[in-house]
């Protein structure tokens, strides 16, 4: 009898928490209490992550050795191409700056100039196929807000969906609910980055009449219309096009994108805090 009463009390308690938390996931008294709890747990999570890091590094080192030689040759070729493009881009950027001055061109926040980084570590990882979210060890006390973009040195990771004073929840690009306005910088084609199979992404809503090629770089589109500001500034690298496919019955191209950021083994990330007041 006692067992059943205990079970009933706990189940009712869990359902009550679930109801309150589900109705108000990012604000309210329960959210504040959760924030204090998350702050208290953060040191333990950071400690566990630090203890595990050497083991992860050793694993990464040996798994990297297997493909090091072929990757080195590929990267050398890539570096040569990137150097050539960078030189061309430098001249074009200077010219663009002069033209913007002449036109008194007004623009919103630009990446990375108008942003400061809050570097932090990932303390928890996606626990299953239900949601692709991670928790980071920095929150509103560091200037992070809901919708703050999160990046790594390689590219875009996602955006903040829930924040407490010392931790924040980040929705990854691979989450089913994630959708990012993106642009193919090589061909000027715009589309939406959504989750694809496994750890890949899809550039959706690209008309079959447009051209996209394998190897094209995809970046964030940024705000196109001031009335509808985008979460991300223009130019954060997202990934490169892996393959482009089409079928007779599909309305759009099937553009598979490999993300630059290693979304399945995130370690350190940076939150982009705008320094420009809108």
């Amino acid at each position: 009898m006692v067992r059943r009463i205990v079970l009933a009390v706990l189940v009712v308690g869990a359902l009550a928490l679930l109801t309150i938390s589900f109705r108000s996931p990012t604000s309210g008294a329960l959210h504040d209490v959760q924030g204090y709890g998350a702050t208290a747990l953060r040191p333990f999570q950071v400690a566990a992550e630090r203890v595990a890091r050497p083991f992860r590094d050793v694993y990464g080192y040996f798994s990297g050795l297997a493909s090091a030689k072929s990757e080195n040759a590929k990267l050398r070729t890539e570096l040569r191409d990137v150097r050539r493009t960078a030189n061309a881009n430098l001249a074009a950027a200077q010219r663009a700056g002069e033209l913007e001055k002449l036109l008194r061109f007004e623009q919103g926040t630009s990446y990375p100039k108008d942003y400061r980084n809050v570097n932090t570590t990932v303390t928890s990882y996606p626990s299953g196929p239900f949601a692709q979210e991670v928790t980071i060890a920095a929150g509103s006390s560091s200037g992070i807000r809901v919708n703050t973009p999160i990046v790594t040195a390689d590219g875009l990771v996602g955006h903040v969906t829930n924040v407490t004073p010392d931790t924040a929840q980040v929705m990854l690009l691979t989450d089913a609910d994630s959708s990012v306005a993106a642009r193919d910088v090589s061909h000027g084609v715009a589309g939406l980055i959504r989750h694809g199979q496994g750890s890949t992404l899809i550039l959706d809503r690209v008309s079959k009449a447009l051209q996209v090629k394998a190897g094209d770089i995809i970046v964030t589109q940024g705000t196109v219309d001031r009335r509808y500001p985008d979460l991300y500034p223009y130019g954060i690298p997202i990934g490169s096009v892996l393959s482009v496919g089409t079928s007779d019955i599909a309305s759009y191209l099937t553009v598979q994108v490999t993300p630059f950021a290693q979304l399945d083994s995130l370690d350190a990330v940076a939150a982009l805090i705008s320094t420009k007041h809108r």
């Binding site: 189940v11 109801t19 998350a38 999570q45 626990s127 407490t164 924040a168």
Partner: peptide, 12 residues
Amino acid sequence: TATLGTLGLTSL
């Protein structure tokens, strides 16, 4: 709490 998920979901 640690993952900032919906409270009570895993508990239940």
